[in-house]
């Protein structure tokens, strides 16, 4: 299908129709002086001019706590799936790329059908960034724009949106929209080109393809110990990261002690007990080992596992969330680049 154009009024009507249908609709809204994804009850609350959300949309594909199965104590287990339809509106390109990565993790090797079931019931409406956030560095990570994963990508061209709908789900929503003109497409290109250079509050001094090679030589660099010396091991960087997907699993028994639920919940590799085994042996006991592990996952381990450039998408949330101010990946990579010859 050709690329469409819809006025801001038409988008508002579309969102109102979706809300009125009774299906779950979630989107970006103001939350005091910040922004957050949440349930939309009015199209007027949707804010596609936001800078960054507090938590990433990862919480929709991998909820903070999610039931995997129910069980009878001493007896059988029964899978549970979330089959609710959801339309999610306002995903920025760097977050869309993060979702694409998590899709790959849960679909490769052994397929996690709890994840894929929920994901298949989602309609994702992404939007190009209008307002750069204070710590974004997506331009450095090659994630300032996105070309796949969404059902619709909206680009604000002033008086209207250019809307690209590569999927049937997206096209169905835009069936009444007019085609974008060459002039509209030129405006869209200008927005995307601007973002590819301007979403860069923390410029990385190398190409992202160089990161695995840099980290290959940086395992014993003093930066890990220097930074980790003030780490609280609080896991805030994990919690706000759009590409962190590690989880723990826990059983909860109902009040009658006859049945219960097995759930998974977010976990974080910065937390002290993350690599603990029974008998209280901790395979990553030192803070600097855990601190380094996160940066290696983003820059080397996950990229190698998925065959992608980098698992840090440059949203900058960890920089904002980290109280001692040590989580900035670019700061660390640039420090390493000063000392290590590629």
């Amino acid at each position: 299908m050709s690329i469409k154009k819809i006025s801001k009024e038409e988008l508002s009507q579309l969102v109102s129709t979706l809300i009125a249908s009774g299906d779950r609709v979630e989107g970006v809204q103001a939350k005091d002086d910040k922004f957050a994804f949440g349930p939309l009850t009015s199209a007027d609350d949707l804010r596609l001019d936001y800078d960054v959300t507090l938590l990433s949309p990862r919480k929709y594909v991998l909820p903070p706590v999610e039931s995997l199965m129910t069980f009878e104590v001493g007896g059988r287990y029964q899978s549970e799936y979330d089959t609710e339809k959801l339309t999610l509106i306002g995903v920025h390109p760097y977050d869309m790329i993060a979702l694409n990565q998590i899709d790959q993790v849960f679909s490769q090797d052994e397929v996690d059908n709890h994840y894929t079931t929920r994901r298949k019931n989602m309609t994702l409406i992404a939007c190009d960034v209008v307002t750069p956030s204070e710590n974004v560095f997506a331009s450095s990570m090659g994630t300032a724009t996105v070309s796949e994963g969404y059902d619709i990508l909206l680009t604000d061209i002033g008086d209207a949106y250019v809307a690209d709908a590569p999927t049937e789900k997206g096209q169905a929503l835009l069936c009444n929209a007019a085609d974008a003109t060459a002039e509209d497409l030129a405006k869209r290109q200008a927005v995307q080109e601007r973002n590819q250079s301007d979403l860069n509050r923390h410029p990385l001094n190398c190409k992202i393809e160089d990161l695995p090679q840099l980290l290959e030589k940086a395992y014993d660099h003093p930066v890990w110990e220097e930074k980790a010396a003030s780490c609280f091991s609080c896991g805030s960087c994990n919690q706000v990261c759009p590409t962190c997907y590690c989880f723990n699993v826990q059983d909860d028994v109902s009040w009658d002690l006859k049945s219960g639920t097995r759930s998974r919940a977010w976990d974080g590799c910065l937390l002290e007990n993350f690599a603990n085994v029974a008998g209280d042996h901790n395979f990553r006991k030192k803070r600097n080992d855990r601190f380094r592990h996160r940066l290696y996952r983003k820059g080397k381990y996950v990229p190698e596992k998925l065959g992608i450039g980098t698992a840090c998408v440059g949203c900058g949330r960890c920089i904002t969330a980290c109280v001692p101010g040590i989580a900035n990946p670019v700061d660390i990579y640039n420090t390493l680049l000063n000392d290590i010859k590629l």
Binding site: S67, L68, M69, G75, R76, Y77, S79, E80, Y81, D82, T83, E110, V111, D112, N113, H114, T116, T117, K120, N121, V249, R262
Partner: peptide, 17 residues
């Protein structure tokens, strides 16, 4: 909360022994 949409095996579901 009901069926998986894709018919694939639940990799987390234990079988009884």
């Amino acid at each position: 909360m009901s069926e998986c949409c894709c018919g694939e095996k639940d990799i987390y579901l234990p079988e009884l022994a």
